[in-house]
Design a protein around this nucleic acid. Sequence first.
RNA 1: GUCUUUAUGGUGUAAUGGCAGCACGGACCCCUGUGGAGGGUUAAGUUCGGGUUCAAAUCCCGAUAGAGACCCCA
Length: 452
Amino acid sequence: MSTEKTGAGAPSKKPLSTDPYKGVRDFYPAEMAVQNHIFGTMRKVVERFGYSEYGASVLEPAELYKAKSGEEIINEQTYTFIDRGEREVTLRPEMTPTVARMIAAERKVLSFPLRWYSIPNLFRYEQPQKGRLREHWQLNVDIFGVKSIQAEVEGISIASGILREFGLKDTDFEILVNSRKVMNYILGEVFALDAEAARVVSKLIDRKEKMPASDFAAKIEAFVGIKHDHEKTQKFLAMLNSQNFDEFISHLPESARAAAAGHEAFVEVQTLLGKLEALGITNARFSQTLMRGFDYYTGIVFEVFDTSPENRRSVFGGGRYDDLLDIFGAEKVAAFGFGAGDVVLRDLLESRNLLPSATKSADLYLAVMGSTLDDSAQEIAQELREAGVRVAVDYSGRKIGDQIKYADKQNIPFVIVIGEEEVKSGTFKLKNLKSGEEKVVKAEEIAKIVLN
RNA sequence: GUCUUUAUGGUGUAAUGGCAGCACGGACCCCUGUGGAGGGUUAAGUUCGGGUUCAAAUCCCGAUAGAGACCCCA
């Protein structure tokens, strides 16, 4: 043990682990470059739609998350602790309550509509698994103050636009759309389930794909108010298995069909799909089994899935939540938004080879012939930096060959060797490491060639 | 919280109860104004804590961490 060698008599301490905390990641420069690429692409697309970035602390009063669900139990999947002033504090597990809080606070001052986005890190205490860690970053895009379906159209266009910007084709992903109003109507009115039964059945529907069809059927039949009515159960299941909206309607009980087809919520879904298609978004479709876990959604909900079965988790998800400001006693604001987590997105891009390859830390490396020339090299570098070139200087005093080797390993494309002659004459041999070419240039020509 | 599975230098691996080895990578040296080469030197490892055994990287128990599934999903 190396530690035991060191201390002469001193009690040896166990060295600290270099592992990051369970379920969180270190971002070494290579991973950080990927992360920056992901965030940069998101920002580019979102800002194209006129959205402004906001931010907030990772710490929130725990009550913010209790208030939302109305349940007493603070969710077990949060990091919650008591601070030195006896306040109960939670590391934010999602951004929506925070942004709702911010908007409620400034409700009277802000002019709507607001188009806001943020890329916060979020925490949840759970067992890490594919696509789920304890800390992740999530793009949050929200539009406030737009009641019309155009908010949904815009939000889903952004989601689609981001994935396209990453290089994905419309066939690589699909956008599933449902409506809380549709499902409330179906479960509550058409199948006459009480609120509790509707809630349980909603959860079941959400998990439908995770269990054998027979189990699912048995649970549906056993649970809900359609107990002992086998025919009705079959109808219900057939409805859930529908491939499209028309089929879905056709499986409703005869008596409800006409009313449903004309129901505002049903019309809304179809309108949305029509408008998306008109914008060239061809991969959106109705999905009656899409539920989403949040209780606060009030209308349209959507999720984006990878069409290859490798990534089962939704890449993006969101919906309309018009009532969330209620808990702050603020006047209602219409809201539609979605989140896009970095973990699942990264998995998706990686599986399709759409992540950028190594990035360069500098454009030009100055190899220096001996440390007496360091100062001269600094001066040359400084001038080039003023011209916008990213320049790094070698102070190692190593042999030129080694210095060039280093530049190559760092993926720096150009090298200039700084020696007595160069400093005196002001002309340099600019070496392109990719091609091996070497070109004699004057100082003022360097920037142009390197930045090209 | 539950289950499955894994854990050997920085990385990738070998050693199936009997000398912890190899490759790549790192540092240094040789080659002294031009890279990926070669030669040489060197540092660096059995995740942690128990147990079985004459003997443990190897078998057993526990912990921790990774991967994945469940639960949950914010």
